[in-house]
């Protein structure tokens, strides 16, 4: 998938959870990505984060630490 599209999708998820009450928004973004993103997509996401994570929102970046690295 194009990087911009992947970044856009991650930020869309973060935009929903950032509006939610509580302090666990990053956990919930990561949980959503872990539950619904196929390993190839998570791999691409994490690689992009390692490369600086250009375009990712603050919450997306914070969630990255909790996204499961595919085996």
């Amino acid at each position: 998938m194009k990087t911009e599209k992947m970044v856009y999708m991650a930020n869309q998820i973060a935009t929903f959870f950032v509006s939610q009450p509580g302090t666990d928004q990053a956990d919930r973004v990561a949980a959503h990505i872990n539950d619904f993103w196929e390993p190839r997509m998570r791999e691409q996401f994490l690689t992009h984060v390692t490369a600086g994570g250009e375009g990712l929102s603050e919450l997306s970046l914070k969630a990255a630490a909790l996204v499961r690295q595919p085996a």
Partner: peptide
């Protein structure tokens, strides 16, 4: 145990060659 690809993800992965 890992989730699979959704239809739009399949098409993206196809364009990527995987």
């Amino acid at each position: 145990p890992e989730p699979g690809l959704r239809i739009p993800n399949m098409l993206d992965a196809a364009v990527d060659g995987t």
